[in-house]
Structure formats: structure tokens, C-alpha cells
């Protein structure tokens, strides 16, 4: 059951991702495809027993970050998206080919490896694995310094974004 749900969510995620990259007409439609991918990945996280992270995935990525993208697209009113194939270059095609080949290699490698090739599998998970209590406890004890550092990062990013996007010197 959970395996089939995983395949379903994975298929939605991949289709959404492809839709985002290949949709060349409409940036908002791209963003919606990305939302589908994010929500599907939230489902995959829950299937992998990462309940807290799965909820945050939907809440932060789909609910805030992509809304920000869409907001900027609307703010700048980017109705037309330039993707003329005439200006496509050999470099891009080569890049796509290299990425595709590397991807095929990686996926083939991952799927042909026996399950025992990845060491350290645990059969039984601890009680409450992936819940907000255990993740929170880890975050506020072992990784407290990293947590505090992220607050600095967010502050600097916030100041930076305001400085960058603000209109300067009343040029309206």
C-alpha cells in the first residue's frame, strides 16, 4: 500500500517538475507545477515517516516560497515568457544531453544495487520517530548552534532582500 502511494506521489512529483521546466508560456503555470511537486514530496516525506518535516515542506515551500515567486511574477506582470527555440544553442542541447546521460546512469546504479548495499538499515524505528517532539528535541539540543546560526542567516537575507528590492532615492 505505502509502496504504491510512494510511486503515485513520485509520479506526481516528476510530472510536476517536468511541467515546471518545460512549460514555456506561462510562469504562473510553472509555479503551480512546482506546487504540485512540493505537495507530492510532502506526501513522500510522510510515507517515509518524516511527519513534522512533511508538514513543514507543504507549509513553507508550497505555502510561502512559491507564493513569493508567484507574487513577483504578478508584480512584474511577466505575461510573456521568452523561450524562443530559434535562440537555442548547441550548448544547451549538449547540457541537456549530459544531464540526461548522468541521470540515466545514476538511476540505473541506484536501482540495480542490492538493498544490502546501503549499510545500517534499522528494522525498528524508535517510538514517535519523525514527530515534532523528537525532531524538536534534536534541534534544540544537539543542533542548537546551527539553529541559532540560521536565525542570523534569515536576518541577513531579510535585510539584503529589502535593500535590493527597495527603490532608491525617490526615482519612483
Amino acid at each position: 500500500m505505502s509502496l504504491w502511494l510512494f510511486y503515485a506521489f513520485g509520479a506526481v512529483a516528476v510530472i510536476g517538475a517536468l511541467g515546471m521546466v518545460l512549460n514555456v508560456r506561462n510562469a504562473v503555470a510553472s509555479a503551480l507545477c512546482l506546487v504540485a511537486t512540493m505537495v507530492a514530496l510532502g506526501g513522500v516525506h510522510v510515507l517515509l515517516e518524516a511527519y513534522f518535516v512533511g508538514a513543514l515542506q507543504v507549509l513553507v515551500y508550497a505555502g510561502a516560497i512559491v507564493v513569493l515567486f508567484v507574487f513577483v511574477v504578478m508584480l512584474l506582470n511577466l505575461r510573456r515568457d521568452g523561450f524562443p527555440p530559434a535562440r537555442a544553442r548547441l550548448g544547451r542541447v549538449t547540457a541537456a544531453a549530459v544531464v540526461g546521460a548522468a541521470l540515466a546512469g545514476l538511476v540505473g546504479l541506484a536501482l540495480t544495487l542490492p538493498e544490502t548495499a546501503v549499510p545500517g538499515a534499522t528494522a525498528a524505528l524508535p517510538e514517535g520517530f519523525g514527530g515534532y517532539r523528537r525532531v524538536g528535541a534534536a534541534l534544540f539540543t544537539d543542533y542548537l548552534l546551527a539553529f541559532e546560526a540560521t536565525s542570523l542567516l534569515l536576518l541577513s537575507a531579510m535585510v539584503g532582500a529589502v535593500v535590493l528590492a527597495k527603490r532608491r532615492g525617490g526615482d519612483a
Binding site: 510512494f6 513520485g10 512529483a13 516528476v14 517538475a17 517536468l18 515546471m20 521546466v21 510562469a27 510553472s30 511537486t37 514530496l41 513522500v44 517515509l48 515567486f69 513577483v72 511574477v73 511577466l78 515568457d81 521568452g82 523561450f83 537555442a88 544547451r92 547540457a95 541537456a96 544531464v99 540526461g100 548522468a102 541521470l103 545514476l106 538511476v107 541506484a110 536501482l111 544495487l113 538493498e115 546501503v118 538499515a121
Partner: peptide, 27 residues
């Protein structure tokens, strides 16, 4: 775990493809 990693690899490759072939900064 192999299937999770395969899905992760596919998504990463699609993302890399998007950065390489698209010119719209938003995308």
C-alpha cells in the same frame, strides 16, 4: 531506499536541466 534515491536523482536532474536550458530567471 534505492527507489527513494532514484526519485531524488530524477528530480535533481530535472532541476539541473531547468537551470541549464531555461533563461527566465524566475524559472
Amino acid at each position: 531506499i534505492a527507489h527513494v534515491i532514484a526519485l531524488s536523482a530524477v528530480l535533481f536532474a530535472i532541476g539541473a536541466l531547468g537551470v541549464l536550458v531555461r533563461r527566465n530567471l524566475v524559472v
